[in-house]
């Protein structure tokens, strides 16, 4: 299925808020149909903000000349967003649990953890520079 929306943005964290709202606005009609629309909206916003932030700061090393690609695909069963940076990728499996007592007081390390908690599926490509976020529509309706 072709993406519903594709756009690129520079690695500038000040652009994240608008990019998130652009995606959420495109999903607006679908989200409003969900029983827990506010929860779906927030989960999508937070997870996408995390993915964009990771792509800009870690993937592209905050180099504004490097871009981030965002794709949104809406199917009958899911809202799927893919965020891809130009970086070399990173080891997404080596992420410590931020909820352990020794990690709780650390100011960072919660981004990927939150993505995984808020969405139904989070997957990375082999290189580790592209993350796909899947929010299942039917599952949300069953809540």
């Amino acid at each position: 299925m072709d993406p519903e929306l594709i756009f690129h943005l520079p690695s500038d964290v000040l652009r994240i808020e608008d990019a998130v709202e652009k995606v959420v606005a495109r999903c607006h009609r679908i989200i409003e149909l969900e029983r827990r629309a506010s929860r779906v909206r927030m989960n999508l916003r937070v997870a996408l903000a995390e993915a964009l932030s990771n792509a800009m700061l870690y993937g592209n090393g905050a180099d504004r000349s490097k871009r981030v690609r965002v794709e949104l695909t809406i199917t009958a069963r899911a809202i799927i967003t893919r965020v891809t940076d130009e970086g070399p990728g990173f080891d997404y499996e080596d992420i410590p649990d931020p909820t352990t007592p020794e990690s709780l007081l650390k100011p960072d390390g919660r981004g990927i953890f939150l993505m995984r908690k808020l969405l139904d599926e989070v997957s990375f490509n082999e290189r580790g520079n592209s993350v796909t976020l899947l929010l299942r529509r039917d599952q949300v309706r069953r809540e």
């Binding site: 927030m42 937070v46 903000a49 995390e50 932030s53 650390k106 100011p107 390390g109 981004g111 939150l114």
Partner: peptide
């Protein structure tokens, strides 16, 4: 509206 992990971190 929402808080991201950086917001929680701060």
């Amino acid at each position: 509206g929402y808080i991201d992990s950086s917001g929680l971190g701060v």
